[in-house]
Amino acid sequence: MEKTGKLKFAFYWAASCGGCEITVLDVNEKILDVLALADIVFWPVAIDIKYKAVKAFPDKSIDVCFFNGAIRTEEQEHMAKLLRKKSKVLIAFGSCAYQGGIPGLANVADKKEVFERAYLQSPSTHNPNCVTPKTSFKVPEGELKLPEFFDTVKTLDQTVAVDYYLPGCPPVSDQVAKAVEAIAKNELPPKGSVLAPEKSVCDECPRKKEDKKISKIYRVYEITPDPEKCLLEQGIICIGPATRGGCGAKCINANMPCTGCGGPCPNEMEQGAAMMSALLSILGVSGEKELEYDAEKLADQIRDPLGTFYKYSLPASLLRRRIMKK
């Protein structure tokens, strides 16, 4: 690496959709400020730099590594460890690296089930020979190797030590810009911090909040919500109350409920339990002394509780994954 006096940034993607990469570009003209500030020394999505080049970097030579995506393969784990070694500051960038994110929902299954679904059962698959990925395959030229696909999706910090977290699916660009600014000014908070406000999405939500007592849950297509009124109060499950803000309540402003990509609020152990407890406390609260009251029925209204409460945070939850079948 040449020495320019500028900071050195790296971007990497593990198990993710690519949305986080777009967010980096979403900072628009500020990308130029970033480039003025830092050299991007590694960015597989945009720049062709081989892994072995990274391996050759001196340790701690990358100032900041923005790592997005969860860890589900041997390759991702390897790169996480490598980039940790090479970086002064490692940022878990986006919901997947931070909490496991959408790929983390695969923790309701194991490798075998995932492969069966992806390579055999899904309606769009045509695979008459039932070929599934293998870690090694002999061809006349020799043995081909693929990285191992793990049973369990992990968050970045379950794999390597992480210095900062930038939540969001994807992180909103001004949060990113703020982080970059903090890096530039060397004003980063204590290590381990989440680079987002301490309050929940509700704090940024402009809707009117009156009475949280609800008795029926509606799915988004079932009603046309009043755009002025709190969605949760209208019976739509909005995870905003249990989700760290910083996003400016973007989804809610588009009349869609928050699904929780910001992760748990700072004083909660896990987002799923926090939202579950909150929602089930207010659901049916008005009718609880009545004869027809039925706790079970109220809870039955939520079809896929794990997917609802742990949409972005399953690997980071207390139980982390569905228990492996023996």
Binding site: E198, K199, S200, V201, C202, D203, K209, E210, D211, K212, K213, L232, G240, P241, G245, C265, P266, N267, A278, S281, I282, V285
Partner: peptide, 15 residues
């Protein structure tokens, strides 16, 4: 109440 974390969702008030 720790006001640093309270985001005014009003769930507590309802329960």
């Amino acid at each position: 109440v720790n006001e640093d974390f309270c985001s005014g969702c009003k769930i507590c008030e309802s329960v």
